[in-house]
Design a protein around this nucleic acid. Structure first.
Length: 267
DNA sequence: AACAGCACCTGTAGGC
DNA sequence: TGCCTACAGGTGCTGT
């Protein structure tokens, strides 16, 4: 389940390895992963040099010379790998070939991942909210959230771009806020605490190259190490690391939510 | 406006 | 062992 830290890890590796390379071919094994007609996509990218690779929310963005950008969204089970592992050929959806003979492979068990072409950087992903990497941006985004549950806001990519279920639960646990807490009844101080938790969690997960629970891998097919540090997500029934109360699981904002019923009360 | 439900998919875990 | 079902969750859509 790649969220901001996982995508950031992938982008840093792609940047180091692929910037400046020229795309010579695209081989699609699963045409539906292209949201742009295949011929248009090929025409736009083949023969072009990769100018810059960057991240926006959970999107991986490849900016090519002369303007066009294509985005890759990994959704739940997508991976970008420099080498295609034997035995995973079954899940290969798309490959890019480069002028130096190297390649990049997009694998995706569940076929949810998508590749899309955009005319340029200025028109990219217009509905996406701001990056949740500085506390003031987060406070501002959350405080315009009406009466909604705080977890619904954290997960809404139009409000903040990049947070998914794992880091939403971790941030709420760290700041002692119940996922169902209505945002308009959250004090300014607790909102700031949440914002600081979000930034801290995301930065620490980036430093650990993300969280591998099942499918996520780096471009070198390595696991992220942040799974060892999760304090709430996936710990249903295990003791809270602050007070020892067994953690609970409930469906909130249509997602499984993991929280401590004692440390995270609605106030 | 906010939210629920569903579709998209497949692998895995659990029950029987 | 094997069959069946529920479940995992990011995004975008429809309906209420």
């Amino acid at each position: 389940m790649p969220e901001l830290p996982e995508v950031e890890t992938v982008v840093q590796e792609l940047k180091a390895r692929l910037t400046g390379k020229t795309i010579t071919g695209v081989e699609a094994d699963f045409l539906s992963c292209l949201e742009t007609p295949p011929e248009n996509y090929r025409r736009a990218v083949c023969g072009r040099r990769i100018h810059e690779i960057f991240r926006r929310g959970k999107y991986i963005c490849f900016e090519l010379d002369q303007g066009p950008v294509f985005t890759v969204h990994l959704r739940m089970t997508g991976k970008l790998l420099f080498q295609l592992p034997e035995g995973e050929r079954k899940h290969l959806r798309l490959s890019w070939c480069f002028a130096d003979g190297s390649g990049l492979h997009f694998l995706d068990v569940r076929k949810f991942g998508r590749v899309r072409l955009w005319p340029g950087r200025s028109a990219l992903l217009p509905k996406l909210g701001p990056e949740p990497l500085d506390p003031q941006t987060i406070v501002t985004a959350l405080t315009s959230g009406g009466k909604r549950a705080v977890k619904a806001l954290l997960l809404d990519q139009h409000v903040l771009a990049g947070i998914g279920n794992i880091y939403a639960d971790e941030s709420l646990f760290l700041s002692g806020i119940h996922p169902s807490q209505p945002i308009d009844r959250l004090s300014r101080a607790r909102c700031r605490k949440l914002a600081n938790s979000v930034v801290g969690i995301l930065q620490s997960a980036i430093a650990n190259m993300g969280t591998t629970l099942s499918d996520y891998r780096t471009t070198r097919n390595e696991n992220g190490r942040h799974g060892d540090f999760l304090q709430a997500y996936g710990r249903t029934g295990l003791p809270c690391l602050h007070c020892g109360t067994p953690l609970q699981r409930a469906v909130i904002a249509s997602r499984s939510s993991h929280f401590c019923p004692r440390c995270q009360k609605i106030r």
